[in-house]
Design a protein around this nucleic acid. Structure first.
Lengths: 201, 201
DNA sequence: GTTTAAAGCTATTGACAATAGCCAAAATGG
DNA sequence: CCATTTTGGCTATTGTCAATAGCTTTAAAC
């Protein structure tokens, strides 16, 4: 029996819309529980149809990652604009944590490394990191000193955010206060950054 | 055709041996790429046979996690024994990073939270964290001050280790040196820890 | 030595990503 | 405004995985 289907409108998907809805779904259910079947249902489409817009699940995650890096970079830039020094670091740190809490899967995706040769991903990653670099250069750090400080700053924020998202801070103490002290502690360390240089061996 | 099988000896698996080999495999291929088919082949057994020793892949990961927490806790305890203050923190930090680098999947598993009610996992998790707590109490921190410091210390180490494992420190600067400065920076912050208390609001 | 429990096996199911190949809907271009 | 092409859907199917059912043999227990 031949079924005639008249005027079934298209869903009107694009690669960006698919990645966008995937990010929303991932933030709800977790990046690891994102499935094409579930995503297709949300988009009102069958699962194989998604392959008109993505190459694979890995490429979808990559698209989420690129979008997320752009968003996070923008958030950090907006938080630090017009501020400098400790003030900028504090504002940026809080913006970082808040965004990560609001978008756990996006945050997770934003920490994925670009594949070698993926110029778009490499560019957006570098741009986001540049925002952090710019804030720290107010401390007049140069060369390896700056690199070490940036690595320390990123490590500090990332570690806290991951533990918080995992629910690893179960003790009764106020987590907001712990974060505030973490940031202040980092600023203290930055103020003495040249005293942390290990002796040449 | 009936096949007669005489004297096929058993593989002699136990839950611990399965988890142990799973940990080895995971460190080689990545925790996310651990499959029962691959694990069974390594153990000289068919995939469904593993279910005589595990309940599910989730439970296998939990078993890896418990083993890993025990190992990491022991490593940290051994690194800090006989030392105190900044010396203990430095030694423990390096032991932490070295172990994580040697056992990336085990490390990842060790950061999984215990399921509520899983007494064994909760116990071994608490024991590992206690090692860190003990080292920091040499700084005479009490109550929330100590909790904040422990959270900061764990965040700092974890963030660095995760970024290093992900290959996120691609810049030319020496990663060992960056780690050394991170640890020294944390110690500097600890020395001024009460100056990081946020003003009451 | 007989019974029983444990540990292996084959066969099968169901979720998922992924591919092939078809058809309708938009877009393009005289 | 009709003809052609391109695009975005679709069904059907495959392969990989975790997981279950049910059988058989090994090894322990009595």
């Amino acid at each position: 029996m031949i079924v005639m289907r008249h005027h079934v409108p298209r869903a009107g998907l694009t690669r960006d819309r698919v990645a966008g809805e995937a990010a929303v779904m991932a933030d709800e259910v977790g990046l690891g529980r994102l499935t094409l079947a579930g995503l297709a249902e949300r988009l009102g489409v069958r699962q194989p149809s998604l392959y008109k817009h993505i190459d694979s699940v890995a490429s979808l995650r990559r698209d989420i990652s690129v979008q997320a890096k752009r968003e996070l970079g923008d958030v950090l830039a907006r938080a630090s604009v017009g501020r400098s020094g400790a003030d900028a670091i504090t504002a940026m740190s809080h913006a970082y944590r808040d965004w990560a809490r609001r978008h756990p899967a996006r945050y997770e995706a934003s920490m994925l490394m670009p594949s070698p040769g993926d110029v778009e991903d490499e560019t957006v990653s570098a741009t986001a990191i540049q925002v952090i670099t710019d804030v720290l250069t107010a401390y007049r750090l140069e060369g390896d000193d700056a690199v070490d400080a940036i690595r320390a700053f990123r490590s500090t924020l990332h570690g806290f955010v991951v533990f918080e998202a995992a629910g690893a801070f179960a003790m009764s103490a106020d987590v907001d206060r712990s974060f505030e002290r973490l940031v202040r502690g980092f600023i203290v360390a930055l103020g003495q950054w040249n005293e942390t240089v290990p002796p040449a061996r």
